[in-house]
Design a protein around this nucleic acid. Sequence first.
DNA 1: CTGCATTTTGACCAAGTAGTCAAGTTTTTG
DNA 2: CAAAAACTTGACTACTTGGTCAAAATGCAG
Lengths: 217, 217
Amino acid sequence: MARAARKKLKEAPEKTTRIQEINRRLILDAALDVFSTYGFRGTTIDQIAERAGMSKPNLLYYFPRKQNIYVTLLEETLTEWLAPLAEIDAEGDPIEQLRKYITLKINMSETHPEASRLFANEILHGAPAISDFLTKYLKPLVDEKAGVIRRWVGEGKLAPVDPYHLIFMIWATTQHYADFDVQVRAIMGSQVGRPGFKEQTAQAVLSIILNGIRPRD
Amino acid sequence: MARAARKKLKEAPEKTTRIQEINRRLILDAALDVFSTYGFRGTTIDQIAERAGMSKPNLLYYFPRKQNIYVTLLEETLTEWLAPLAEIDAEGDPIEQLRKYITLKINMSETHPEASRLFANEILHGAPAISDFLTKYLKPLVDEKAGVIRRWVGEGKLAPVDPYHLIFMIWATTQHYADFDVQVRAIMGSQVGRPGFKEQTAQAVLSIILNGIRPRD
DNA sequence: CTGCATTTTGACCAAGTAGTCAAGTTTTTG
DNA sequence: CAAAAACTTGACTACTTGGTCAAAATGCAG
């Protein structure tokens, strides 16, 4: 009994060794690549294991279920992905704040397209793994920022616009370049890779949205 | 030999019987529901067969491969999905033409969200089945309409804006409501179902985009 | 109504894949 | 440095799933 108690005590803090840390990272990085390309069902554990450079049983030693990897990955990236929204400052200049937000989002789409695709895929399939997150964490955050935008509109600092639809519009346009990359490339061809393409994109998106919401006389 | 020739002749017109017509329709309708929800890999033939109300071997009698159903479905809906773009009239009033286009797209997102999700999923995963379509059919069409928009800009009828990014923006914002429906619902809750929601959405999107591209003094 | 063509299906197979296990290897620790 | 703990893996199992097949049922033309 004393032994059992000690064992339980030892397990509780769930200590992580150096090797665990390294391998979990390797697995999650590999999993992001594969899941974001093939989706949950389309991804096999073998694929992830191979990309992570370890055997399948070894991978399963760290994450006993495929689901575990997927959910861990989603949780890990979601907060980071939403960070820019939280940074919108109610006291700042509306147009400047939104310019900053849009710019940040376009940069994220460019630097972490896998994260964007991972979410897009999850939502597209009905968000089975993160519907809780959406209502418990995302909704309150969006509600708060929608309040800020509504206030700005009330003060005449922005044209009358529904704050929720504005936020959706920003998400849609910025993430489009990550999620629909293949389509963008099929249409714009070699331009996409060229230096300055991201700036051109940012310029176009900012120009339309900001002029679209600038207060009109 | 004569018999073989006759047989070949008979196969060539690929006559479709009444039963074939009915069953192909049943299968494709069922497949659209399932594929658009679970994606290609996430869908099983059994699921489609069950929803179509027939046995799996029977379904395979009409479409020998899973791929066949999927590709047929994509081809069948793609043209229809792009039809509104083709209707943009170079001789019409720019703002009016774009208003009409955006409105049509929002309506389609509302009435055929499955079609939107089917494409979104396909593109998200790298468009393995329709990359040819994108370059051979979609690109020329977009190039043509981009030319029209560019001309409008040149004539001062629209604010200076990159036509390709404008088109992407319209696609992104309108399809967002179909593809990310779960997220929209998680955030806007009961509002989504309410009558008038579609109109409110259209109003918000039109207001921002049209004001964003209206020529400025 | 009769015989041929079309349609339908139960039973089956082969491949792929999530997850197990016991036996080995390496790392940590007292 | 020796024992314990942590880590690693080849071989395997159970199950899912795309697709086959032969035989039965149904539809239809003459």
